[in-house]
């Protein structure tokens, strides 16, 4: 069934034992996102290195297994990525879930391609994209600092 494709072992594993979960003392950027529809909330903590690449990335918050696993896998994938690469990956992930036409996802997403099946659960797309949206906000802060946003409830 569809849901078995959605809740694969890797998703359950990362939702139960999320990697890079916790505050990050040396973080320069924080972005908090919440989904008022369901109460999921994720904060990403980001430290950029000398060449503007992601030096360290962690997250805190709570949410469903899709949201937690998406955040956990994202933090693994994004480590050491340059600003440009991060932008491309964020775009690729978002595209995999929301592009009108379903197509073969960007190979660079690796394990994250497990979330492609979320497409078949439209109510859950925002669960998967929330941490990515938060990372995008954190990276978009030019002078550093904190940002907070809410997902559009009409979507």
């Amino acid at each position: 069934m569809d849901f078995e494709e959605l809740y694969q072992d890797i998703v359950l594993d990362h939702s139960r034992r999320p990697r890079n979960f916790g505050e990050l003392a040396e973080a320069q950027f924080h972005a908090h996102g919440d989904n008022p529809n369901c109460g999921d909330e994720v904060t990403v903590h980001l430290k950029l290195g000398a060449n503007d690449a992601i030096d360290a990335l962690t997250f805190t918050g709570n949410g469903c297994s899709i949201c937690m696993a998406s955040a956990s896998l994202m933090t693994l994938k994004m480590k050491h990525k340059s600003r440009a690469e991060s932008g491309e990956l964020i775009h690729a992930f978002h595209d995999m879930l929301t592009a009108e036409q379903e197509s073969e996802p960007d190979k660079r997403l690796g394990d994250l391609r497990v979330f492609q099946s979320v497409r078949r659960f439209p109510q859950r797309v925002k669960c998967a994209t929330l941490p990515w949206h938060a990372l995008e906000e954190a990276l978009g802060k030019p002078a550093g600092g904190e940002v907070s946003f809410s997902e559009d409830t009409a979507g």
Binding site: M1, D2, F3, L6, Y7, R16, C38, D40, G63, C64, S65, I66, F121, Q123, R124, C127
Partner: peptide, 14 residues
């Protein structure tokens, strides 16, 4: 226990 409400609702719906 150990299962988020959203996951319960998605699976129940299935």
């Amino acid at each position: 226990p150990e299962v988020h409400a959203h996951d319960v609702v998605t699976l129940a719906d299935q």
